[in-house]
């Protein structure tokens, strides 16, 4: 029950602090701007640019948002007032994780949707190849963002300094994004990239989150 309240509260916070608007409008707009600024982009589908943007920036945005938000909340003793109510420490982290993950995934979906609509408007229906590549990029993007969110939580509870948390978030989110985009080229052909993405989503992110929760439970606030 209290977890639902916390999750709604976090979502409400992202909405009211304008972070959600910046993400939801920012990523689709960036897709259009990047397409317009790229000198060699003529003929390149918007969807491709959207995929590139989400896979390169989604992880960083998610990781930095979470790491700095948690670090700032801990430094300002924001959690004290939650934890003296019937609220579990793990619920605080999970609510924040899910809120940021949901917001960033919606932003990514909006960027893809914007790319698809712009392609439809400029070059007509996207080809099957483009759609398949987009699906691969989307699934890997989701996996990357999930893991980046989990890493953001871990970094947020580990560092006391906000700037260190931000730097850690940029490194972790950025490197992760780079690795994730390379995955399709590293996998043997018989492994389906979407299934692989789903697998690492299911295994890696929860493990990192579980470690974070254990550390957070033991940590003196």
């Amino acid at each position: 029950m209290n977890f639902n309240i916390l999750l709604l509260d976090e979502m409400s916070g992202f909405y009211k602090s304008k972070a959600m608007v910046a993400l939801w409008i920012g990523l689709p707009v960036m897709t259009v701007i990047l397409h317009a600024l790229q000198p060699n982009a003529e003929g390149v589908p918007f969807l491709f640019i959207a995929g590139l943007l989400v896979s390169s920036m989604g992880g960083i945005i998610a990781c930095v948002t979470l790491s700095t938000s948690i670090c700032s909340d801990m430094n300002n003793h924001v959690y004290d007032l939650f934890l003296i109510r019937p609220v579990r420490k793990s619920s605080l982290l999970l609510a924040k994780f899910l809120a940021v993950l949901t917001c960033v995934l919606i932003a990514a979906a909006l960027a893809f949707l914007a790319g698809y609509l712009l392609d439809y408007w400029t070059i007509g229906v996207s080809s099957d190849v483009v759609l398949q590549d987009t699906l691969n990029a989307l699934s890997l993007g989701i996996a990357g963002i999930s893991i980046a969110c989990a890493l953001g939580v871990l970094i947020g509870i580990t560092f006391r300094s906000l700037s260190l948390a931000a730097i850690g978030g940029i490194y972790a989110g950025g490197q992760l994004s780079a690795i994730i985009t390379l995955i399709p080229t590293l996998l043997p052909e018989w492994i389906n990239p979407e299934l692989f993405a789903l697998l690492i989503c299911i295994v890696v992110a929860p493990v990192i989150l579980a470690v974070s929760i254990i550390i957070f439970e033991r940590r003196q606030l």
Partner: peptide, 29 residues
């Protein structure tokens, strides 16, 4: 915690909250 009220010495609130929103959240919790 159900029977306890606590006023900490130092505490922060997330900046986006209004007074009423903050009280409603803590009331629900």
């Amino acid at each position: 915690h159900r029977m306890l009220g606590y006023l900490p010495q130092e505490v922060g609130f997330q900046e986006w909250r209004t007074v009423r929103q903050m009280l409603i959240t803590f009331g629900r919790l």
